[in-house]
Write a protein that binds this DNA or RNA. Structure first.
Lengths: 196, 196
DNA sequence: ACCAAAAACCTAAAGGCTTTAGGTTGAGGT
DNA sequence: ACCTCAACCTAAAGCCTTTAGGTTTTTGGT
């Protein structure tokens, strides 16, 4: 009998491809086994259970995003870096929607710590270097970027912008522009009175 | 034998409560029946199937958000309206995390059209009235608000901000402030050159 | 070339979830 | 008292996940 020659790595990669095709939520061991031409039970030698499979897809996605982000950011600063960062996320989400969703899959604390998540955070900080922010402002700015990028991408992916003109690309550019202006004025913004 | 006296409405409401407790993804007919003290099959008289249940929870959530938003916005304009809108979303997500997730559940085109979604969109436009935007700018601004609010809330809910100082509330206020400034300068922002 | 051990794959089975078909029982109106 | 509708039920089929334990291929040392 011919063997598929699977390993944890190949299984996870196939799982990621499946997630991109049918959606992260529908990337199940059953369907994966079917596509790999293997019995379901065989997958359980490579992956502990369905959730472990999903967590590993998440780790893979985080890694890939970190790599692309790192490449996109090389040699860029200020507005250019901001745009490169946003486009890197958005392009990744469009080419790999399942993996992108996987990134929001909750990980155990130590899985999260040893993931590429911190590396992505560090890259975001690096992208902001050109704006000359204080450490505190920097944290707020990282959160602003994360929120805006993730929010736009997830709404766009869910089809939230597809039912009205103009094309979302225009809004994306407007928003990047707004972010750049906001960040340039970030440190001059007084902290709101009500800060707790 | 005692009857529970269920209707579609009570089932959906119980489903929404369940979603808030265990998460939208785990709000299954099985678990719901268990809590209602009823056999699973009985639910299928009130709800077509598992996805129908989830869709109805989504519709309920959209309706509730529209109501709260509408109330929060009454008598406010400009920055005040912006903050009220954001806080309404965020408060709803915190008190009803399952329902909030449900709102991103994909609906059929006609279900979406007859949902409270358009009402929410109209309320967002109304909240922006004080900024005096052109219709095109208004659309971009609605998308900006939707993205930023949803992104922040969904990352916050997923615990993305809980592993670092300062508390997310501070970032939220900074971000609302940034949005207000951005919107005030929105129409003076030249459309980026590369607009397609 | 041989032969153990590891790795990959399998069958079988238990238990949970979703969904449908068809039967029973309670509650309200006449 | 009766009739009807709605609420609820049992039963069963089909799918998914997970575990236990067996078989076969591959591998690498001799």
């Amino acid at each position: 009998m011919q063997r598929a020659g699977l390993s944890t790595d190949t299984v996870v990669r196939a799982g990621a491809a499946l997630a991109d095709e049918v959606g992260f939520a529908h990337a199940t061991p059953s369907e994966l086994a079917r596509r790999l031409g293997v019995r379901v039970a065989s997958l359980y030698s490579h992956v502990a259970n369905a959730d472990d499979l999903r967590a590993r897809i998440a780790l893979l996605a985080l890694d890939e995003v970190a790599d692309r982000t790192s490449e996109a950011l090389a040699g860029r600063a200020g507005r250019e870096a901001l745009v490169a960062l946003g486009d890197a996320y958005r392009d990744y989400a469009r080419t790999h929607p399942g993996r992108y969703d996987a990134m929001r899959h909750p990980l155990s604390p130590d899985a999260a710590a040893s993931s590429a998540g911190p590396r992505i955070a560090a890259l975001t900080v690096a992208a902001l270097r050109g704006y000359g922010l204080s450490p505190l402002d920097e944290t707020h700015a990282v959160r602003l970027l994360g929120s805006t990028f993730h929010g736009f991408i997830s709404l766009e992916l869910a089809g939230g912008f597809s039912h009205s003109a103009p094309p979302s690309q225009q809004s994306w550019e407007r928003i990047l522009d707004g972010l750049d202006r906001t960040l340039r004025a970030w440190s001059t913004t007084p902290t709101p009175e009500g800060t707790r």
